[in-house]
Design a protein around this nucleic acid. Structure first.
Length: 936
RNA sequence: GCGGGUGUGGCGAAAUUGGUAGACGCGCUAGACUUAGGAUCUAGUGCCGCGAGGCGUGGGGGUUCGAGUCCCUCCACCCGCACCA
């Protein structure tokens, strides 16, 4: 019987939809399991074959868990706010909502074509007001909370205000940028605006001045990668770093918990490492240096307080507040020049030219608190404003960067650590004996660190301090297509939260999506909307992309709830995501923010778990193959790739060819035949007359293949729909899994798909007799058949559990080939095979399930049980011992006669006899493997 | 520079705790059936060798009766971070 996947697949997809086969309830006595994919941004390009890899893997796992008896939540939705739709709107005038809706429809069609078991009744779209109402709501919660470091959790601003009224802020230990202390009376005496300013220093969502790349000529803020050589990439206008008032989220308050809780997660080590590096915890000391002639101190952070006797200069970040105050008149010119230079450089340039040493002397001197030495104070861009205190003590003897700086500017270097006992230690290794360091002399580095911190604390000039690289997240975007802030400002500019009952605050309609003047969001042009409230104006910035995606996994639990972001019953039932599948590109963005929001909601008692994503699998990217042909620029002819040599390569241009024209595309043997050449000429009419020089002695025209991203501009996008049309989605799903390990990046190569296609046909054929009629026998399976079945059950189950889907497909192939050889048509065996295969090939298994006359859906069946006795190699063990030392065991098949065993045993003894006189060192017998006799 | 990973046939890749390296698929070879074969089926296929046999998991060294797997070292490629004091 011929296998016609398209007809079968359409039939069952319709059936599933009608039957609501994949609808999942929040009430079940089955154990819950939550399988989640990172939801896509619906781009205009649609899906290519690389996108579904993770979705297929998670779908297989979700189906497997369902068959195993779990109530499985497996939803899908769209991260629908984003820049591309807005750019498209600016160019074409098409409203982002319209283009997004169109793209979502296209995505849905493509996803539906692959037979996923999503429960679409729970679909979410982050740009839908009924969804972003709750994004705004969570933002307001962040706004109304601060982080209390004693309670180690978020607490309300209301409670904070109450404490300020009682005792001021001196006793409050909080994550804050508030650096002055006030009493209760002082607090009460403050103006509302003043109080608001102070509270902003505590709120988890707060407004502050942040440095951005400002382009005056374009009237907008530019992202780092839009700035090149200090000018805008578009237009070449000057760009400066300028502070702007922006919303931020105080994620740093959660740094310690975000770091500590990593260890409980089943994520790859690489992923956890990326997160912990991003958080970047370090321990050290914070201490003050007096400034000579000023009533001010420089506060610095160092992980190496032990090296303080080698501190021969200090460096402030160029943006440091003290710079203006302490610069001497003689140095003012130098400093101004330097600041001008620094401002002209984007953050990216500062990062990319790490090796270059720059700086300027302020003319001021600090005083070493331990020996009274005068230390010159410099500024330099290698000291970052946002890390530590934005100021360092420089120890050129023990820090690579400080040394380069000292060498360039001729500053003194004092050796303070003797590393002669540690050959091979680098300049920054914390080993060696202290020298030239007063009371630290003779100590080892690690004891010296402790000793000096103790001394500093006694002297009251410094403290032990933990620092993080993690920065607060800037949360404002000057864009239209994002969530509006549910915040209004009074005449004093005090931010006031909107009432929950007024949410959602929806986006106003606009026709022009270009940024407004002064770097403002296009929303600023919706004046009616901005000013529609008496005595208040609205915030015109919108939230960034990660806002909506930081909590969507919770919405799926109760996606249509109008009264809460999800009901407490739903959240308590589903708890958290058991398996999360997505790309590594979100390692520190989305995954960090989601963990942060989740922890905040946990503090509020709104979610029962500390972490949102228990287990994480990162699927590798599927790349494309880019095919080039060689064009001889002078002769104006195309040459087959084998004719291009290193010697003549320069005379050729490489022209990308649409892969549809290439036969056997892939890494070897890809070529154009006459038809492909005709297609190419029709496509690129400018080459219509060009001659093609073929490979030697062949009718082939070789191309050059390269692995790269699939993209429209490389003409190498493979649309899954085309593959599905030809082979069916069961085949496509299995082939994607068969390509290789799920976490590994690999180029797409359609060539091997025939193998999987063949497998499916053979599997299907098992159910048909020689006359092509459906026929399965009611007889019991033979011992041999049952062994094949149970080998498959065991292997497939193990492999699914460890996400080794490629070997799983191989196991299906082996079993099918074996059953074919056995000419097995026993229902008892085949029915189990159908269920086993159902997660991978949902359509054909459903078809066969029904053909066998089984009731309901195969996807509600019970996963086959593996019974060990079918696999057991019945064996008798016969122990032998040699030289009284090693004990070994030889296994014989159970049908071996006693005589055979005796004989084998004697033969071993005979070998032993034969070996007499020689010293047998050892005999190792590995059961069913080998006998290894070692003679000395 | 730092951190993480990878390296196995012509290709994609397998290989529980160290135990017959190369499962499975592609490709290739031969054959069968066919008007035909880019269909299907059967057999073969790591390399060298007629053979017996030898050699084989990036290179070199080590531990072990035994190493793709463990240790040291070097090389190549990929990914992430990048002046974090």
């Amino acid at each position: 019987m011929d296998y016609h996947p398209r007809a079968i697949e359409q039939k069952w997809r319709k059936y599933w939809e009608e039957q609501g086969t994949y609808k999942v309830s929040n009430e079940s006595d089955r154990p819950k399991y939550y399988v989640l994919d990172m939801f896509p941004y619906p781009s205009g390009a649609g899906l290519h074959v690389g996108h579904p890899l993770g979705y297929i893997a998670s779908d297989i796992f979700a189906r497997y868990k369902r068959l195993k008896g779990f109530n499985v939540l497996h939803p899908m939705g769209y991260d629908a706010f984003g820049l591309p739709a807005e750019q498209y709107a600016i160019q074409t005038g098409v409203h982002p909502a319209a283009s997004t809706a169109k793209n979502i429809n296209r995505y849905r069609e493509q996803l539906d074509n692959l037979g996923f078991s999503f429960d679409w009744s729970r679909e979410v779209q982050t740009s839908d007001p009924s969804y972003y109402k709750w994004t705004q709501w969570i933002f307001l919660q962040l706004f109304e909370h601060y982080y209390d470091q004693e309670a180690e959790k978020a607490m309300t601003i209301e409670a904070l205000v109450a404490r300020f009224e009682q005792e001021g802020n001196g006793t409050v230990k909080a994550a804050t940028t508030q650096d002055t202390v006030f009493s209760a009376d002082e607090w009460k005496a403050m103006s509302a605006k003043m109080q608001d300013t102070i509270l902003m220093n505590y709120r988890l969502a707060y407004r502050k001045e942040t440095f951005v790349n400002w382009c005056e000529a374009l009237g907008t803020v530019l992202a780092n990668d839009e700035v090149k050589d200090g000018v805008s990439e578009r237009g070449g206008f000057p760009v400066e770093r300028r502070p702007m008032l922006q919303w931020s989220l105080r994620i740093t308050a959660y740094a310690e918990r975000l770091l500590n809780d990593l260890q409980s997660l089943e994520w790859s080590e690489a992923m956890k490492k990326m997160q912990s590096n991003w958080i970047g915890r370090s321990t050290g000391a914070q201490l003050f240096f007096d400034l000579e002639g000023f009533n001010a101190k420089i506060e610095i952070y160092t992980t190496r307080p032990d090296t303080i006797f080698g501190a021969t200069y200090m460096v402030l970040a160029p943006e440091h507040d003290l710079v203006a105050q302490i610069t001497t008149p003689e140095q003012q010119g130098d400093i101004d020049d330097y600041l001008k230079y620094v401002n002209s450089r984007s953050e990216r340039e500062r990062m990319s030219e790490v090796k270059e040493v720059t700086g300027a002397f302020t003319g001021a001197y600090a005083v070493n608190p331990f020996n009274g030495d005068k230390i010159p104070v410099w500024i330099g861009e290698y000291v970052l404003k946002d890390y530590g205190t934005g100021a360092i003590m420089a120890v050129p003897a023990d820090d690579e960067r400080d040394r380069r700086f000292a060498e360039k500017f001729g500053l003194p270097i004092i050796d303070i650590i003797d590393k002669s006992a540690h050959p091979g230690a680098t300049i920054e290794d914390k080993v060696g004996t202290m020298i030239n360091s007063d009371f630290l002399d003779g100590m080892q580095v690690l004891e010296a660190i402790d000793a000096i911190i103790e001394r500093m604390e006694e002297m009251g000039i410094g403290t032990r301090k933990i620092n993080y690289k993690l920065r607060d997240a800037i949360y404002s975007r000057q864009r239209y297509w994002g969530e509006p802030f549910p915040v209004k400002y009074d005449a004093d500019g005090v931010a006031v939260a909107m009432e929950e009952s007024d949410l959602p605050l929806t986006l106003p309609e606009l026709e022009d999506f270009k940024p407004a003047s002064g770097g403002k969001s296009p929303l600023a042009r919706a004046e009616d909307w901005v000013n529609e409230l008496d005595a208040f104006t609205r915030e015109t910035d919108t939230m960034p992309g990660f806002a909506g995606s930081s909590w969507y996994f919770l919405r799926y639990m109760d996606a249509n709830n109008p009264d809460a972001f999800a009901s407490q019953e739903a959240i308590n039932y589903w708890q958290d995501v058991d398996l999360y599948v997505g790309g590594t590109e979100h390692a520190v963005g989305h995954l960090m923010y989601s963990r942060f929001w989740h922890k905040f909601l946990y503090d509020k008692g709104l979610v029962p778990t500390v972490e949102p994503f228990k287990k994480l699998i990162n699927q590798g990217m599927i790349q494309g193959v880019i095919e080039f042909i060689h064009y001889h620029k002078e002769e104006k002819k195309f040459y087959s790739a084998d004719l291009v040599t290193d010697a003549n390569r320069a005379t050729f241009a490489e022209i990308p060819v649409h892969i549809d024209y290439v036969t056997n595309y892939g890494l070897d043997d890809s070529h154009l035949v006459a038809e492909g050449i005709a297609q190419f000429k029709a496509w690129r009419s400018e080459y219509e007359g060009a001659e093609f020089v073929f490979a030697k002695g062949s009718d082939r025209f070789m191309t050059k293949s390269e692995v790269g991203k699939m993209s429209k501009s490389k003409f190498n996008v493979i649309n899954p729909d085309d593959v599905v049309d030809r082979y069916g989605s069961d085949c496509f799903r299995m082939y994607e899994m068969f390509l290789g390990p799920i976490e590994q990046a690999k180029p797409w190569d359609t060539k091997g798909i025939d193998g999987v296609s063949k497998f499916l046909r053979r599997f299907y054929d098992l159910f048909f007799n020689a006359k092509d009629a459906f026929h399965v026998s009611e007889e019991e399976g033979t011992k041999e058949e049952m062994k094949v079945l149970h080998t498959a059950i065991k292997k497939v189950t193990q492999d699914i559990e460890r996400f080794s889907f490629n070997t799983c497909v191989a196991a299906f192939m082996v079993a099918t080939n074996d059953l074919r050889k056995l000419q097995c048509n026993k229902k008892a065996v085949l029915k189990e095979m159908v269920v086993l295969l159902a997660s991978f090939a949902p359509h054909v298994t459903e078809e066969l399930w029904h053909q066998m006359g089984e009731a309901g859906s195969v996807h509600h069946a019970t996963y086959p049980v593996f019974e060990e006795h079918y696999l057991k190699e019945d064996a008798i063990s016969y122990p032998i011992s040699i030289n009284g030392k090693k004990r070994a065991v030889v296994d014989f098949p159970s049908d071996a006669s006693k005589e055979e065993i005796e004989q084998a045993a004697t033969s071993i003894e005979e070998v032993q006899k034969w070996l007499e006189g020689k010293e047998v060192k050892r005999i190792i017998v590995v059961p069913k493997r080998m006998i290894n006799i070692v003679v000395k």
